[in-house]
Design a protein around this nucleic acid. Sequence first.
DNA 1: AAGTCCATTCAAAGCGATTTCAATTTTGGA
DNA 2: TCCAAAATTGAAATCGCTTTGAATGGACTT
Lengths: 339, 339
Amino acid sequence: MRLKELAEHLGLSQTTVSRALNGYPEVKEATRLRVSEAALELGYRPNASALRLATGRASAVGMVLRGADELGPHMSEFLSGLGGRMATQDIDIVVTTVASQQEELAAYRRLAASQRVDAMILHSPTLNDERAELLMDLKIPFVLHGRTNATRPVAWLDIDNTGGLERATSHLLDLGHRRIALLNGVKGRTFAEHRELGYMAALSARGVAFDPALMGNTAFTDEVAFRMAQSMLELRPRPTAFLAGSMMTALGVFRAIRQAGMTLGTDVSMIAHDDVFPYLNADNMYPTMSTTRSSIRQAGSRIAELLLQLLGGKPVSEIHELWPVELVLRESSGPAPLF
Amino acid sequence: MRLKELAEHLGLSQTTVSRALNGYPEVKEATRLRVSEAALELGYRPNASALRLATGRASAVGMVLRGADELGPHMSEFLSGLGGRMATQDIDIVVTTVASQQEELAAYRRLAASQRVDAMILHSPTLNDERAELLMDLKIPFVLHGRTNATRPVAWLDIDNTGGLERATSHLLDLGHRRIALLNGVKGRTFAEHRELGYMAALSARGVAFDPALMGNTAFTDEVAFRMAQSMLELRPRPTAFLAGSMMTALGVFRAIRQAGMTLGTDVSMIAHDDVFPYLNADNMYPTMSTTRSSIRQAGSRIAELLLQLLGGKPVSEIHELWPVELVLRESSGPAPLF
DNA sequence: AAGTCCATTCAAAGCGATTTCAATTTTGGA
DNA sequence: TCCAAAATTGAAATCGCTTTGAATGGACTT
């Protein structure tokens, strides 16, 4: 069903039908009613490509996902938050997957040059993110999930990683822990650097020396976390607490602790960062897991909102949101062992 | 940079430039070279909307993701497999997220009516999938990840869930287990029904009676798996082995076993289905996990291929692939306890 | 009854590509 | 050297929508 056919069917011009459907004021109410009823009945919907060409808007936002290991389970959570909001505006989400950094930059150029999307979402930035600079050069609007030190203003939403880790670390220090291991994300990523800052700040506030052997920078998989925790537990004196960068990491650490014959929550403590996955609940772990918590799905949903504001003309410099990180104490974090 | 500008810049007509770039044979080789060099240099790429309107192809495939719990971590794996292949053909992946079944059907209608995508990917089908029927009614091509009993032929790729579970169950029976619990997916989903078939077949082949108390049909989250396994372990006689529907499920069962003071691999055995997540490795669990294994990422990649074939005109009735499921034995499955 | 104003409606011009059909230039053979 | 055929290029139509600018018709004023 084309606009033309619908117009003919109604004995009206395409102009009037188009206006009626798009809510223009200069169309008689009776006509509008007649038109929208016919459209509904005949199942008419404007052809997306034609509409996009005519309006110059792509009605789509893009997201580039990097190779699997980076992708992880976070993305589907984020996506479902994002998608819910976008759907209401009939805006598509176009996802592109790439294997390398090289490919990723090329993907942005491609998307920009072909005007396939109106805006993009950038995630997992580094401190000086090349992709952000590129997008600014290409003049394609974007919202950053995270933060970066850019030369120009950037729209972003981030969680307070520094604050979260400072509180978590301080809490462990309060419990008497002095050797606290940090299983952090890959070096260079802003969130990892921010977490490190919070960790360091808490340590130095109590005058506890930083031991580089207690810090790891790896991807958030259970496997590498397992190995890293295992080797850290062989240190003497061994760490009495772990700060795990993600729930996957926490699972790995958990296994290492158990394999070492120790008990989580008494022999060793752990606080993990929880992005809130519906299928992996800190409250239902055994023992229940203390976490620094922030819903990545909510972030997705909110970023959709910010994106719409950005497209609506709100200045980039006014789009900044820093979300607090909750510290939720459960059974996995307890007092440091006495000896 | 528009085609028009590029043409003017070159002193050629749009026609010739378009042809040169699209590899038509009737353009002089020297001209083609000149054109493609200029295009590269000036960074010209056809406007996606215009191209789509002109060709009538959307150059996009759609995927509808249902609310979070169904979504899970599987999707990002699948997507990255899919995306890798699609990118090479400059085909976009448009993802839509919906909260309910109702919304989902509406989403398909919307996508179809607005001709936003050339084809769709359908996943997690039920035995008689309403969505598949709808897509056929709408005459929009699709590849099904899984199987369904449709009235008309459907293009699909599925794994041999029945065979996989039959082998896993038989193996546990060989080890002397007689009370084998099955933590299966939601009732009605084809894969869950197929797994049940395999389980039943193996039991009845050995003359072992089926006990409905040992079967659960739930979503694959660690939480519900934990609860279910916990209550099953309170039965007398208790199950001596578990078949877990996913790695998330396995984690929950694992916790329940440990909480009950038992040891996995000796007191209780488990074989889990592994969709192969890079961040959750059966080989690195402790004890290592026996699995029925099939890479969901590879499935995504292959489905992209099938989709391209479908769009290329290959008949639906020739697009069927049933992948075998590997049984990988590790430490979590051992002989049944003697008493 | 004539002239103004609104309220409606419509014809036609884009949007930026592809593609049909026609025009022009080359090439090759007589 | 000339002409038909082949090779190459171009003008214009088309895809399905939005939007500008013009046209129509009735209500209202005077």
